[in-house]
Write a protein that binds this DNA or RNA. Structure first.
Lengths: 114, 114
DNA sequence: CATATATATAAAAATTTTTTTATATTTCTT
DNA sequence: AAGAAATATAAAAAAATTTTTATATATATG
């Protein structure tokens, strides 16, 4: 029962819902999420940690970057994630998508420099 | 987005998940839930309030009792509730079901006397 | 109508979660 | 190898949630 409560808890926060929406389009490194959300890095890492602990996102290391992506192997989690994506429209994260686009545009291939 | 976070928040607590499980079998008044969970009444009312605010349970007054039941008219909520019911087995609330049974057995038709 | 019962609500206390700030770790680059 | 960049983690502070305790409200009953 704890496990289920934990999954729902991970989804009970607007910042975390936004992160899930941002990951809809694909893998993102922490610094990209930081710039999209316009929040300090440890705060973003904190929320990513909660999503990860709940098994909703997974990570992959690439050099000095850690790339986060949605983890929906489990059918229940897959449904929850799909529900979130469907319930929350892109218009609700316009600001964040815009910031992400700008960030990506202004960075060279080796893109972050916190 | 707040609305969705609110629904997930309502489901992110073990007491509230237990209440949903208890309501699986049908309407219950507050005092029955209190005795099933073995918690003080204001605490139970607090959690019922959160479930109600999230639109997951509904109420019906019957004399001095207020009867709570699952509210799953909405397809999304219905799925969430069904998931909870399916994910949490009856064995996980054995104690509570037992307490509820005893309570019901020991009470006359006009059953509560807090 | 006065009292008892069932439940809600308010205020205060306790607990948990989130945020901030500082620092550690890992990997890359020169 | 030294320094910089990306991220995590720890500690402290702030904020939110939950629990407790006391009280109010509504309905029923004698």
């Amino acid at each position: 029962m704890k496990e289920i409560a934990k999954i729902f808890h991970a989804l009970s926060d607007e910042t975390r819902l936004k992160i899930i929406k941002l990951l809809e389009k694909g893998e993102l490194c922490v610094c990209e999420i930081v710039s999209a959300l316009d929040m300090v890095q440890p705060k973003v890492s904190f929320h990513l940690g909660i999503l990860k602990e709940a098994g909703l996102v997974k990570i992959r290391r690439k050099g000095k970057w850690i790339l986060y992506s949605l983890d929906d192997l489990d059918i229940f989690k897959r449904f929850l994630i799909l529900s979130v994506l469907e319930k929350i429209s892109d218009e609700q994260i316009t600001k964040e998508l815009e910031a992400l686009k700008n960030f990506k545009a202004n960075q060279s291939p080796r893109y972050c420099k916190t």
